[in-house]
Design a protein around this nucleic acid. Structure first.
Lengths: 97, 97
DNA sequence: CCTATTTTTGCCAATATTTGTCAAGACAAT
DNA sequence: ATTGTCTTGACAAATATTGGCAAAAATAGG
């Protein structure tokens, strides 16, 4: 299943005409891993996001936000009460600030 | 760390003067597991929520919602962009309905 | 205070999940 | 057909999760 994060990093990579192996070698993993991450087949590890942002000259915060949204989405999809749960969390977050 | 879910089921259990072992035996686990779940030390398995709702004569949906909110909270706490991520997910959810 | 009961805690082994590599295959361009 | 890129599935190693157990700690009732 496609992810916002994966779509975005693929876009960033291809626009710069970088190959999977360029990214892969800098992230120190096999190209297949990057391929899968871009296609949403595998999750990326949180620590890798910052490195990836550097490699792609992208905004770290943007990528982290997309990644977080993907995580949340996976958790709430198919949940009938997703709406309510999201709401209460939002409120709690705001209070703790 | 305390959870909404754990706090709630402890409340439900103690108000009915049930002991950990009553719940534990019906859920077919050691009492220590229930203790930890109530205290937020261990996650409960999703399938166990429905059973637990029966045992405690509680509203299944309420417990599931609390559980989901806990999951979300754990994911977004300490995330600077939690707010924005939550927002985009809410929007996506609404659209897909 | 003593004892009995309940709850909490730390540790362990078993199990499950995640991670990355490798090799083979698909696809595109020429 | 050849070359280079990307995708896929199978696999092993590393990591995380699970529940049980036993001892410690807390609580309740005399």
């Amino acid at each position: 299943m496609a992810t916002q994060f994966g779509d975005r990093i693929r876009e960033l990579r291809t626009k710069q005409k970088m190959l999977l192996r360029h990214v892969a070698s800098q992230l120190d993993v096999d190209t297949s891993i990057i391929s899968k991450i871009e296609r949403g087949d595998r999750p990326i590890k949180k620590e890798q996001i910052a490195v990836l942002a550097e490699i792609l000259k992208a905004d770290k915060t943007e990528l982290e936000t997309l990644w977080l949204a993907d995580q949340l989405m996976q958790l709430v999809k198919d949940e009938p009460t997703a709406d309510e749960a999201l709401k209460t969390v939002s409120k709690k977050i705001k209070k703790s600030k």
